[in-house]
Design a protein around this nucleic acid. Structure first.
Lengths: 114, 114
DNA sequence: TGCACATATTCGCAAAAGCGAATATGTGCA
DNA sequence: TGCACATATTCGCTTTTGCGAATATGTGCA
């Protein structure tokens, strides 16, 4: 595989890190400030091992950073621009719905800029 | 599933549309102007049925638009902001590499702004 | 040290994705 | 109509992904 293709491969993997509803919820949650795993578990409302599995994926793609603080491990966004990218895509989606007259309001609400 | 979760599901599907190297190549190629399938086949250098399968996915996610022009079908970006989002993520990736001193140059080259 | 809590990993499995090869559909033109 | 070209779909298969349940690891404190 050429070096250039490797870059596209990595670019795709980064995008793949965003391609799951739970991970999107985690990222938006972290955009409101660093949190530890239990807080995320409550906010996203899925079992703790599931959160940890998704956090591992986000870590592997360098989308989040983790830092141990005593007993807890604090997770934070690695780069705020990831939220910008998500918001852009959400806006694209909202416009599509507007064109087809469905769900547009709910999409517009609940973004990171709530 | 709640309506809000449905939105996150759709958001994730949109991101999933970007989560493949071939589709990323297709989108960047289309950012240089509308093209028909054979042109994409040559540029991306994969078999034609493969391109068509990926185009179907991009269509389903409303990332591209298709318009028949006689014998050909012209594909174009549905929304330029998708490229903005991809570029943002590529920049995030480039910065990560810069921190780890790998591949950063190649990542910076070959973006949509070539 | 040993217990309580926070977080991560493993396992087994069911569901989904991606691919090559073959084939089908659609369109223009002789 | 029938042929040539452009594009889409189907099929069989292998690989990957995601999940729940159980379990392991790591940390602070009595």
């Amino acid at each position: 595989m050429s070096l250039k293709d490797e870059v596209h491969q990595l670019h795709a993997q980064l995008c793949n890190g965003l391609a799951d509803p739970i991970r999107i919820l985690i990222l938006y949650s972290l955009s409101g400030g660093a949190k530890h795993v239990n807080e995320l578990t409550e906010e996203v409302n899925v079992p703790q091992p599931t959160i940890s599995r998704h956090l591992k994926i986000l870590r592997e793609r360098a989308l989040v950073r983790s830092e141990r603080k005593g007993q807890y491990i604090h997770y934070s966004l690695a780069d705020e621009r990831v939220i910008d990218a998500l918001d852009l895509l959400r806006a694209v989606m909202a416009d599509n719905f507007k064109k087809h007259g469905q769900l547009a309001d709910e999409v517009a609400r609940g973004s990171s800029s709530k």
